[in-house]
Design a protein around this nucleic acid. Structure first.
Lengths: 355, 355
DNA sequence: GTGAAAGCGCTAACAA
DNA sequence: TTGTTAGCGCTTTCAC
């Protein structure tokens, strides 16, 4: 490299000292040379909390501005062993219905001086590859809102990469989690529909390999039982609008017909409502009551106004980012699980049971 | 650093050669030492297309596997001047209604060996900060689906960072763009509503600082004029459901009432439909026809079934990624603009004009 | 085909 | 407070 600006005092002197080679971006050496100080002085100017005189700072900053110098985060990461990168794992399929969390997380990370390296993972092989990628890029941490097997998690743990799970966790393994527990709210709603005279309920479940889905199903069943409702049928969907509609159709086959349906997420509930109204000719909620989970924005559009249980996505995202930064600072800190309550949205999708 | 594994043949010999220091991640030196080869041999094994013997590769790979070695992408980026990072700029506000593109882009980038560094930008200051961040992280390119001023773009250009604009561009400046042009489809629909006997139309516009919004507005007006429809009123929204509903309310004040409304995006159209039905007691499409743009998944839910113009988001995302990789390879290549046609979705939100 | 050595741009320990 | 120096982990000539 003939033009290496690094060599100190080359014999040929200035002839070689080109301030800024065509198109090359300025380095701290360029700034140091222009300001007539050492390179480390430049470095210190860009590190908050370094001891540096006002005069020096001024000189350096002037030169830096002139050369449009910005420290190279990649090089910094190499030496500090901190990339300031956090891998955010989302499932496209799921997050299509739930983008709020992703954007909130990205913003919060940004505010904490971290960048979001986005990965989509749809299945276990994806997760495998994504984890290797994240590892190669030396991410400081992982926020996982997608599928991840226990082996995969343990791999990350072994590699000392902090992981925060968003709305999922491993029950039999210590892990750091932010989670929404709508148990109380389901019970509240189950009691309410019981009071409204409902006796037979059905469930439209989500994918069984999804923890949120399984949990919601479980708590729904026990809440229904507690309030004396009978579960007359149960079908499975995949979180999508279409599968909600299909689920309702499938329920038509049941021996006993439910007067209230619990859908494991809003999107399926919307499919269910639409199918009931436009295909089966039923009125919701007069002929059929529907309850769901999530509280996404759309669920409150006038066409739906679902009675649903909202997750405090904003607070959860905030918590996830706070937890990841904490674990990055202190990796050996003990695990923590932050559980947020849900909140009932009193929509208009439940009513007195038809007689 | 006492345990630096790099020093060749230290006087004290093996005593110092710890295979893998507790918790330290393996480097190419560790692998080289274990395999009994040079460090550069290891490097070559992980660079496709390097000349290396099968025997060597095997030995190295065995050692690498044993140490769970994966090359450090940060260090590689430092030396190769290629971070393999692409900044993806989205507007949370907008993309909340349009997450498909983001996920598709991320996936495509991934397939091309690039990682998405996600940034949300809501306003011009955000853009400023985000561009500096992207620059610090040495991104190889930028895909911008959010606001960016011409000055900001020129800054990136000056810094030789390739930019691909997604659904926006600067008319008076060469730039690389993927874009959807629904002009023909608007004209087709305008003609259709004219045939259906409509004479008075209104517009619910998006934000005026948004190019897509302005373009759609312009082409809608000219299409309406071409088909002989009169624009009786025009109000402004912000792309949101609520603003669509509010827009319809505002239109009620107009001297002449429209029989057809063009909404600049689906989300506002949905707000409009709901407001018409549930507040004004109008039937859509019998009393009021509605046309919109985007063709998002939700627009086809049975409650809405909008007649809208779809953007081929999948193909556009693919194109954007292809274009950014090309520009990263050959930065001096001339600019290109890829324009995709829209496609009319024959929904159920237009009908014969009420008499 | 393989190894030695230089150096990407930065931080941090140390010396002055 | 400032400068000197030694690397972070990798790729890439350049000899052999």
């Amino acid at each position: 490299m003939a033009n290496n600006p690094r060599k100190k005092n080359p014999p040929e002197e200035d002839s070689k000292v080109i301030p800024l080679i065509k198109g090359r971006r300025a380095t701290s050496y360029d700034v140091a040379r222009l300001a007539g100080v050492s390179q480390s002085a430049v470095s210190r100017c860009f590190k908050p909390g370094s001891s540096i005189s006002g005069k020096m700072r001024e000189r350096v900053m002037k030169a830096a501005k002139e050369l449009e110098y910005q420290p190279n985060a990649i090089a910094r990461g190499l030496i500090t062993q901190r990339s300031n990168l956090v891998a955010v794992l989302v499932s496209g399929r799921l997050n299509l219905y739930y983008p709020e969390a992703l954007f909130k997380i990205t913003e919060e990370l940004s505010a904490a001086g971290l960048r979001a390296l986005l990965f989509t993972v749809e299945n276990e092989e994806d997760a495998e590859a994504v984890i290797e990628q994240a590892w190669q890029f030396q991410v400081d941490g992982v926020i996982s809102a997608s599928h991840m097997s226990q082996e995969q998690y343990q791999l990350l743990e072994k590699r000392k990469i902090p992981v925060v799970f968003f709305n999922r966790y491993f029950a039999d393994h210590p892990n750091t989690v932010v989670y929404c527990d709508p148990t109380e709210q389901v019970e509240e709603l189950a009691e309410k529909v019981a009071e409204l005279g409902h006796e037979r309920a059905a469930l439209i479940n989500g994918p069984m390999d999804n923890m949120v889905s399984r949990e919601r199903m479980k708590m729904s069943k026990s809440a229904l039982a507690k309030s004396g409702l009978k579960v007359v049928a149960e079908v499975q969907g995949d979180f999508s609008y279409e599968s909600g509609a299909a689920g309702l159709q499938e329920l038509q086959q049941a021996a006993e017909q439910p007067s209230v349906i619990i859908c494991i997420n809003d999107m399926m509930a919307m499919g269910c409502v639409d199918e009931a109204r436009s295909v089966l000719g039923l009125n919701v909620p007069e002929d059929l009551s529907i309850i769901s989970f999530d509280g996404i924005g759309m669920s409150q559009f006038s066409s739906y106004e679902l009675t649903t249980i909202r997750q405090p996505i904003g607070r959860m995202s905030e918590a996830a980012v706070r937890m990841i930064t904490e674990r990055v600072e202190r990796p050996d800190q003990s695990h923590e699980k932050r559980v947020f309550e849900g909140a009932v949205i009193q929509g208009g999708s439940i009513a007195r049971a038809p007689s």
